[in-house]
Simulated scan of single mutants.
Amino acid sequence: MPQIESLRDTLLATPLFAVALTLTAYLLGMGLFRRLGQPTWLPAILIAAVFLAALLALSGIPYPEYREGANWLTILLGPATVALGMPLYQQLPRIRELWRPLVVSLPLAASLAVLYALGIAWLMGASQPILASLAAKSVTAPIAIGITQQLGGSIALLMGGLLVTGVAAIAFVSLLARWMKIKDERIIGFALGLNGHAIGTVRAFEISPTAGAFASLGMSLTGIFTALLLPLAWRLVGVIGMSVTS
């Protein structure tokens, strides 16, 4: 046992082990995802997350130590998000055609994405740190992490919320699109990006480049809108709450 613990500590001393563990889980998830016929309700990232959790549990590696090494991968989220500007530029004429409905729908949808999560959690008796961790669950990770830090929430809980939200968004957007007979890839893509952030955007690119571009637009605008207004609204609600209780 001491030798195993010593080996584990040696491996965790470098971020390469956490990165390799993450990539291994992702490759296993992608392999199983393809074998299952690429079901929309079970994306590869969810399978990879389960594999990663199992690997951490079996190896006895504490999550905080793993996360410290895996932060190198988190740094890449920013450039990857910015790179989505290329398909946006390619689809700019189509985006201009729909700028009015996009401007109207975005604030409503982004606000509802925050309100329903906080409402459900509040009704279930969630504490303020948990509410702060779930508020930005529909925003892409690089922006959501910054928002959650401002609100005083838990990054680990946020990441779980991001995963659940992305997977649920893929399933529900696909189901509702079929039920409502919506075939416009622009609408489907925008809904996936707005509600499912990066996970939904990946799914949108699997549909078509047009859907992916509009998903990128929805994800980007939701992130900007939420980053600008959510911290202000959070402080305002806190001030009002303190005034009422006093």
Rank of each mutant, 00 (worst) to 15 (best):
residue 36 L to F: 02
residue 88 L to G: 04
residue 55 L to H: 02
residue 124 M to F: 09
residue 205 F to G: 11
residue 142 P to A: 06
residue 169 A to I: 00
residue 225 F to S: 03
residue 226 T to H: 12
residue 103 V to C: 15
residue 212 G to Y: 11
residue 58 L to K: 07
residue 67 R to V: 02
residue 181 K to T: 07
residue 145 I to N: 05
residue 158 L to V: 00
residue 150 Q to P: 01
residue 33 F to L: 06
residue 220 S to T: 15
residue 174 S to Y: 08
residue 21 L to S: 09
residue 42 L to M: 04
residue 127 S to V: 08
residue 15 P to Q: 01
residue 241 G to H: 09
residue 90 Q to N: 14
residue 232 L to E: 05
residue 241 G to S: 09
residue 80 A to S: 06
residue 57 A to P: 02
residue 67 R to Q: 10
residue 90 Q to M: 10
residue 120 I to S: 13
residue 157 L to D: 09
residue 109 A to M: 14
residue 236 L to P: 08
residue 93 P to C: 00
residue 170 I to R: 13
residue 95 I to N: 01
residue 162 L to N: 13
residue 44 A to Y: 03
residue 79 P to L: 06
residue 181 K to V: 05
residue 241 G to V: 03
residue 115 L to I: 15
residue 224 I to E: 06
residue 112 L to Y: 15
residue 97 E to M: 14
residue 104 V to S: 08
residue 170 I to F: 03
residue 65 E to I: 05
residue 202 V to I: 12
residue 1 M to A: 00
residue 112 L to R: 15
residue 189 G to W: 04
residue 42 L to D: 00
residue 45 I to M: 08
residue 103 V to G: 12
residue 39 P to R: 04
residue 82 V to A: 05
residue 44 A to W: 05
residue 129 P to I: 02
residue 143 I to H: 01
residue 115 L to E: 12
residue 225 F to T: 10
residue 200 G to R: 02
residue 63 Y to K: 00
residue 162 L to M: 11
residue 121 A to V: 14
residue 16 L to E: 06
residue 60 G to C: 13
residue 142 P to D: 05
residue 234 W to N: 03
residue 40 T to M: 01
residue 20 A to C: 12
residue 12 L to D: 12
residue 187 I to K: 02
residue 54 A to M: 13
residue 208 S to F: 04
residue 243 S to M: 15
residue 232 L to F: 09
residue 14 T to W: 01
residue 109 A to H: 05
residue 101 P to C: 00
residue 119 G to S: 02
residue 73 L to W: 07
residue 41 W to E: 01
residue 172 F to R: 00
residue 187 I to A: 09
residue 22 T to D: 04
residue 124 M to E: 08
residue 184 D to E: 13
residue 108 L to R: 06
residue 27 L to I: 11
residue 92 L to N: 10
residue 104 V to D: 10
residue 177 A to R: 04
residue 79 P to H: 02
residue 54 A to T: 14
residue 73 L to Q: 09
residue 138 S to P: 14
residue 179 W to D: 06
residue 4 I to V: 15
residue 160 G to F: 01
residue 134 L to I: 12
residue 21 L to I: 12
residue 13 A to F: 14
residue 140 T to G: 15
residue 200 G to I: 01
residue 207 I to R: 12
